[in-house]
Design a binder for these strands. Structure first.
Length: 264
DNA sequence: ATGGTTGAACCTCAA
């Protein structure tokens, strides 16, 4: 079993379009496990060789044009699951889960891309709420096994007022509506720990800024990407951060990577 | 600010 393990989540907004940014970031941040969202390509189009050359094992759930999630791990991946139970009609590639085999131990990890919801009150917003409920139902089951487990990804929900640039103006809008925040809190009430907030109770840091309206230079962001830890994983948490540097570089994703380090 | 930008694929949608 390794002494420490670093895990990151990043919505890259097209893995093929973002490959130079991704490889540059991994060069400077050689994390053990990377959870990706919004691949926007099928499995066959994923830049497999480039990531394998960096020592990553891959579990990919791709989809043409939209969605797509992956787990990249320097340790072997087993028991890969691509479906989020609870809605047989939902074929969007928004969830992947695997067991990472550490030497003498195991870690369950999942990469999730929660639907954006588009507009409060729309069908897509209802789908978002039900997706969050399905996520809670599955992880309520997982937590019964008392494993070291990490659920990371783009949740498209900012949990607290400090997590948005203007909580009064944004209250009730998509990604910061009370109904969504309640469903994200339901995951926390199961016992899952928000890694960043656990170690930085007051700090305002964002993980997403809209491409439109100069949001990044204006500081108009939200913290909607999260690493949620099982209690057993939270007991090992020693470091958590959001690296907003990639958001300021050429042809960026609209999201920044979120990182946590576990020490065993 | 009922705008604005980006990616993929198509002449528009999802975010």
């Amino acid at each position: 079993m390794p002494q420490t393990l670093t895990i990151a989540t990043w919505n890259v907004n097209s893995v093929r379009s973002r490959l130079p940014n991704l490889l540059a970031w991994l060069g400077a941040n050689p994390v053990d496990i990377l959870l990706l969202q919004e691949l926007k390509c099928i499995k066959e189009q994923f830049p497999r060789m480039e990531l394998e050359d960096l020592g990553y094992n891959l579990a990919i759930h791709g989809q043409k044009t939209f969605n797509g999630v992956a787990i990249c791990s320097k340790y072997p991946l087993d028991d890969i699951i691509c479906e989020l139970p609870g809605d047989e009609s939902d074929s969007a590639a928004r969830y992947i889960e695997a067991v990472v085999s550490l030497k003498g131990a195991a870690l369950r990890v999942a990469s999730v891309y929660v639907p954006n919801g588009q507009e409060v009150g729309s069908d897509k917003f209802a789908y978002k709420l039900s997706f969050l409920e399905r996520l809670s139902a599955l992880w309520a089951q997982h937590l019964r096994h008392h494993e070291i487990a990490v659920l990371g990804g783009d949740f498209n929900v900012a949990p607290y007022p400090v997590d948005v640039y203007d909580p009064e103006k944004l209250d009730g809008s998509v990604c910061y509506h009370p109904e969504e925040r309640q469903r994200l809190r339901a995951l926390l009430h199961l016992g899952m720990v928000d890694a960043f907030r656990q170690l930085h109770p007051q700090m305002q840091k964002f993980s997403w800024w809209d491409y439109r309206g100069g949001s990044y230079p204006r500081g108009h962001g939200m913290r909607i990407d999260h690493l949620l830890l099982s209690p057993e994983a939270a007991d090992c948490l020693v470091r958590a951060s959001i690296d907003e540097n990639p958001r300021g570089e050429e042809k960026p994703s609209d999201h920044a990577p979120v990182i946590a380090t576990l020490k065993f």
